[in-house]
């Protein structure tokens, strides 16, 4: 599995016990390769968030195997998983990604700081990244002084700052208008193409799906489609 970053085998995830078990994932086999620019789509409740959480070790699978960057996540302790996320995974969430008491600059450097990167090295990298995501000159603004799209850009800058193997983004464009969503996609795609950053993002938005190089469609906790995003139209009728 030379160039694979994430590798899932027969992964299931059940919530609850006894009679009220929700089977969020029902046997997922999936491999993400370095450089992928992949979208996870599917109806609400189909297991998109659960899949991302299992990949990052935020949630443990009920059965099956998950490995990230060659490490078996099911064998890692809570703090080892935490450490792994710090160094190997970047996150962009739907909203409220940022620490409200930190400025754009401070938010973007947070992960680097946690990794113990010296201040001068952080400064250089983070200033460059903020410039790259189009926030040059806004370093000292607090999140409440930024628009939703600008906040997401800060989150993206933070996610790529430490050059992780993989960036997981759970509905990164759900809280912004379509123009902003398109701009965020442009940014992600640019980072993917120029810097080779691997992205996996979930979305409901067909325009966003269409931008992905690879589309993974979940239905009821199973992978119903995994392939080119281009042939999407034929496949989905229930997406909205």
């Amino acid at each position: 599995m030379g160039d694979s970053i994430v590798w899932l085998r027969a992964v299931t995830k059940d919530y609850g016990q006894g009679d009220v078990v929700v089977r969020a994932l029902r046997g997922i086999d999936l491999t993400l390769d370095r450089g992928d620019f992949a979208a996870v789509a599917g109806p609400s409740g189909s297991g998109k968030s659960t899949l991302l959480n299992v990949m990052s070790g935020l949630d443990r699978p009920s059965s099956g195997e998950v490995s990230l960057d060659g490490r078996d996540l099911t064998r890692l302790s809570r703090s080892e998983l935490s450490r792994l996320r710090l160094t190997r995974i970047g996150f962009v969430f739907q909203a409220y990604n940022l620490l409200p008491v930190l400025t754009a600059y401070e938010n973007a450097e947070y992960v680097l700081m946690m990794q113990g990167v010296p201040a001068s090295a952080r400064r250089e990298r983070v200033m460059g990244l903020l410039e790259l995501v189009g926030l040059g000159g806004m370093e000292d603004r607090f999140p409440r002084e930024l628009s939703g799209g600008q906040q997401q850009r800060v989150a993206i800058a933070r996610a790529i700052a430490s050059e992780p193997a993989l960036i997981l983004a759970d509905e990164p464009t759900a809280n912004v208008d379509s123009k902003t969503a398109a701009a965020l996609l442009d940014l992600m795609q640019q980072l993917n193409e120029e810097k080779g950053v691997t992205f996996l993002f979930s979305t409901h938005d067909r325009k966003v799906m269409a931008r992905a190089g690879r589309l993974i469609r979940l239905v009821d906790g199973r992978i119903a489609y995994d392939g080119e995003a281009g042939s999407l139209e034929a496949l989905d009728a229930d997406e909205g």
Partner: peptide
């Protein structure tokens, strides 16, 4: 969010 990012 902080925990997800890998904060202990």
């Amino acid at each position: 969010v902080l925990l997800a990012l890998g904060t202990s």
